[in-house]
C-alpha cells in the first residue's frame, strides 16, 4: 500500500547516497520548474510598449493641441502629421513628403504643410500646391470619441 517504502526504504544501507540523489532530483527539478515558469511568467506580463493597433492611434485630448499647430505621431512604423486648424478641426496626413520622403511639418506662418527639404508645400487638404512634391499627402482619418482624438486609417 505504501509506495514510498518501495522507493526509498529508510533501512537501506546506502541511505546517504540515496538521500543525496533525492535532494539532487528534487533540487534540480525545482530549478527546472523555475526555468520553465520564468519565461511563462514574463510572457504573461504585459509589455511596456502599447500593443500594436496599427488601425488606430490615440493622439490625445481635443484641447491638448493648440489651434494652428501640428505634431508628428508614430502610427505603426509610419510618421503621421496631425494638424489642428485655425477653426479647431483636426486633420491627419502621412508626414512623409511625396517628393523625397522627408518629414513634413505644419507651418503656422504659412498656414500650410511645409517640407523643409525643398520648400514643398501642401494645403490643409494634403494637396501639393507648391514646390517639387509630385503628389498629395496620403490622408488619415480623424475620429473624436468623447474628448479623445483618434487617428485611424481606412483599410478598405
Amino acid at each position: 500500500m505504501n509506495s514510498s517504502n518501495h522507493i526509498g526504504s529508510p533501512e537501506s544501507p546506502k541511505k546517504g547516497r540515496r538521500e543525496f540523489i533525492n535532494y539532487l532530483l528534487g533540487g534540480s527539478f525545482a530549478a527546472w520548474l523555475i526555468s520553465i515558469v520564468y519565461p511563462i511568467y514574463h510572457f504573461l506580463e504585459p509589455p511596456k510598449v502599447e500593443e500594436v493597433k496599427v488601425s488606430n492611434l490615440k493622439v490625445g485630448k481635443v484641447g491638448d493641441m493648440e489651434k494652428e499647430s501640428g505634431k508628428i505621431v508614430k502610427f505603426g512604423s509610419k510618421p503621421v502629421l496631425v494638424v489642428r486648424t485655425a477653426a479647431g478641426d483636426y486633420k491627419a496626413f502621412s508626414a512623409t513628403c511625396t517628393h523625397l520622403d522627408c518629414i513634413v511639418q505644419y507651418r503656422k506662418d504659412y498656414g500650410q504643410i511645409y517640407c523643409a527639404c525643398h520648400n514643398g508645400r501642401y494645403d490643409l487638404n494634403g494637396r501639393n500646391i507648391s514646390g517639387p512634391p509630385p503628389a498629395p499627402l496620403a490622408k488619415y482619418n480623424i475620429a473624436i470619441k468623447g474628448d479623445e482624438v483618434i487617428v485611424f486609417k481606412d483599410e478598405s
Partner: peptide, 20 residues
C-alpha cells in the same frame, strides 16, 4: 545545464530503483 543535472539524477534514480 539544469536539465542535464535533472536528467542525470533521474537516470540515477531509475537505476537505483531497478537495483532495489
Amino acid at each position: 545545464i539544469i536539465v542535464t543535472i535533472l536528467a542525470l539524477s533521474l537516470y540515477l534514480k531509475i537505476k537505483k530503483i531497478e537495483k532495489v
